[in-house]
Design a protein around this nucleic acid. Structure first.
Length: 424
RNA sequence: GGACAGGUGGCUGAGCGGUUGAAAGCACCGGUCUCGAAAACCGGCGUACCCGCAAGGGUAUCGUGAGUUCGAAUCUCACCCUGUCCGCCA
């Protein structure tokens, strides 16, 4: 969420930011409306506060006179009249604020200066690592998996519906291996605090990180309790310090959490849905960092490096893509996608999305820090990214490491976890 | 799920419906003292928003939301959360 002052003082800047996202046309009427509401809000606020001040003074006078044994009937009448006015003005103010906040909650973050403007055709490949394997003679992961019995899509569909997978045998083992390899690496080598958080969160948490209110349809909701299945561990982990002020000396803070992720993927049927590329439930290890504003870009670079280290460790060729403003997520100010090369599918698959959210989430979730004993609290910057998402990583492994005999070589770093050097 | 108890400022902890933004203590900040520190003493010390160039002024805030009242931390209702006990259970 943006600072309401932005609407009053830097609306042009906000407009330009929306233009860079290609969202200005859609949002311009809302911004105009916001500007009007902001003015109305202030004038109503002044009017109502003036009357409240008068009422407070009158009430004090009533108290004084009653103590003196007097009759304050006329004062009480004045105060009551003020009270009625206040009631009306307060109601108007509430209406204006509700609409204002409603709009503000649905305006995306402003991207940083070095993010290219425009749609995804303006994305920039920042770097590539490794040598993509030729697709010649490489079978797609779903064929290999079927041959080896690694996952069971049919029975997943029977249990839950399409888009739910049952991993079996070495497939299941591979999931567990990735979980341990990723978490161990980030905790032991990259200095993250290990976190194991709830997979179900409340509405406030979802608003805090920006999933709500705009994207409620994308989440699984437990209506009875108004709770949501998390689409990523980013939600519970970022919200750990919601409505808190942390000691500035503790920044940066770094958290690493494995979690299942649940996504309705409403409206995305048919898009990259083959095999395990887009499913309703998958597993992911998430990295989250809290930073001092001046340091958030450095923290993003560090986090990106930690995610990249996983792909290098696995020996999977990948590239780093800086997303253009129009391709950058709602809450993000800057995002790098990590894409792994899947030779069987013949495509680059997104396995991580590393973002700097600046103070956008912190303002929503009210996460602040005190720079020093004497300074006022400021909003932290939040940074996060996958390190990594499992299904596409598994797809890439199966394809990159497949051998002519149909078996799959287990990446060196996973062998201790998988227990073998070949999936047969 | 049931029965009690309780939610006050960074912490502990007072608070007859009327100068209570809220006693007191601790913590913290500034100062005096000291070679320095501690102790002692003096002063300060929440947050958000509005008006104002500023000085300053105003409003709100005692779990959340409604309500009663001229006036609510104090009364009423609903909800949320915490603790204890019972039930159930991996």
């Amino acid at each position: 969420m943006h600072d309401a002052r932005l609407i009053r003082e830097r609306l042009d800047e906000l407009r330009e930011a929306m233009r860079r996202r290609g969202a200005l046309e859609a949002l311009d009427p809302q911004l105009d409306r916001c500007e009007l509401l902001e003015r109305q809000r202030r004038s109503l606020l002044q009017a109502v506060e003036e009357r409240k001040a008068a009422r407070n003074a009158t009430s004090q006078e009533v108290a004084r006179q009653k103590r003196a044994g007097g009759d304050a009937a006329d004062l009480v009448a004045t105060a009551r009249a003020l009270g009625e006015e206040i009631g009306q003005l307060d109601a108007e103010l509430a209406t204006v604020e509700r609409e204002f906040d409603g709009i503000l909650l649905e305006i995306p973050n402003m991207t940083l200066a070095d993010v290219p403007a425009g749609d995804e055709s303006n994305n920039i490949i920042v770097r590539e690592w490794g040598t993509p394997r030729s697709s010649d003679g490489v079978r797609p992961h779903w064929e290999i998996a079927a041959a080896q019995g690694l996952f069971d899509l049919e029975r997943g569909a029977k249990l839950s519906g399409s888009g739910f997978i049952v991993y079996r045998k070495k497939g299941a083992r591979l999931v567990r291996a990735l979980m341990n390899y990723f978490v161990d690496s980030h905790v032991d080598r990259h200095g993250y605090e290990e976190v194991w958080a709830p997979s179900i969160v409340n509405r406030s948490s979802m608003i805090g990180t920006g999933q709500l209110p705009k994207f409620e349809n994308d989440a699984y909701r437990i209506a009875e309790d108004d709770l949501f299945l998390i689409p990523t561990a980013e939600v519970p982990v970022t919200n750990l310090y919601r409505d808190e002020t942390v000691d500035g000396q503790l920044l940066p803070m770094a958290f690493c959490a494995y979690s299942p992720c649940f996504r309705r993927e409403a409206g995305s049927a048919g898009k990259d849905t083959r095999g395990i590329l887009r499913v309703h439930q998958f597993d992911k290890v998430e990295l989250v960092r809290y930073a001092v504003p001046e340091d958030s870009e450095a923290q993003l670079a560090a986090l990106l490096g930690h995610a990249e280290a996983m792909l290098r460790g696995l020996g999977l060729p990948y590239r780093v893509k800086l997303l253009a403003a129009g391709d950058t997520g709602f809450s993000s100010a800057k995002t790098y996608d990590l894409e792994v090369w899947a030779s069987g599918v013949g495509a680059w698959l997104e396995v991580s999305s590393c973002s700097n959210f600046t103070d956008f989430q912190a303002r929503r979730a009210n996460i602040r820090f005190k720079p020093s004993k004497t300074e006022k609290p400021r909003f932290v910057h939040t940074v996060n990214g996958s390190g990594l998402a499992f299904p596409r990583t598994i797809a890439a492994i199966l394809e990159h490491y497949q051998r002519p005999d149909g078996s799959v070589e287990v990446p060196e770093v996973l062998r201790p976890y998988v227990g073998t050097d070949r999936l047969v």
